[in-house]
Amino acid sequence: MNSPLVTALMAALPQFVTGTWLTVQLVALSLLVGLVLATLVAVMRLSHLAPLSWVARGYIYVFRSTPLLVQIFLIYYGLGQFDAVRQSLLWPLLREPYWCAIIAFVLNTGAYTAEIMRGGIEAVPHGQVEAARACGMGGGLLFRRIILPQAFRLALPAYGNEIILMLQGSALASTITLMELTGVAKAIAARTFQPIEVFCLAGTVYLGMSFLITRGVQLAERRLTPVKR
């Protein structure tokens, strides 16, 4: 390590911090909205109404079998091609790379999480449903009080993996000009001609975040398991 590099990295530190903050924002917002979407889709997927189930299946299949990059480009470049979209109320949103990235991430993580949630819902023991019915619960109340909380708990370990995958997917936001962590690293690497050091530094930050996520999920698992509390 030569000192000009250290000075360059120190000078770039504020950029790294804002990049990391943008990454955190993108991931947190996408996961939050994605979880709501995923829960809806999982319920649709398990619905006895065939058309609802088909729509959910189709959505999950398409978004899980195509690269995230295609989805981002389709929303960022593709939608702007149509005059109808340009004149619509949504255009101020769809014009911004930030919101395009969020929309793509939400749709992507929604599809993966829906399958995770489906697994969680199916794993709730049927006796629980019967007991709730015997207590007079039904419909929405049964779902909200009995099935959903347990499904969340059962889905948590798999959802932890999805959080980390979303963190990694957020790097693709840099391809549509967003200066999140990977975007910042690429810009600094081009400026300082020290790609190895700069990308390793960014990688360390990602590893740190992955570690925190893993620990957080472990903690949540323990909190949500009454026996271990």
Binding site: Q168, G169, L172, T182, A185, K186, P195, F199, C200, Y206
Partner: peptide, 17 residues
């Protein structure tokens, strides 16, 4: 633990340098 895109950047630009 790190994004695939970062691994690609590291090997490509790092490999060049």
């Amino acid at each position: 633990g790190v994004p695939s895109l970062l691994v690609i950047y590291l090997l490509f630009f790092g490999g060049n340098s």
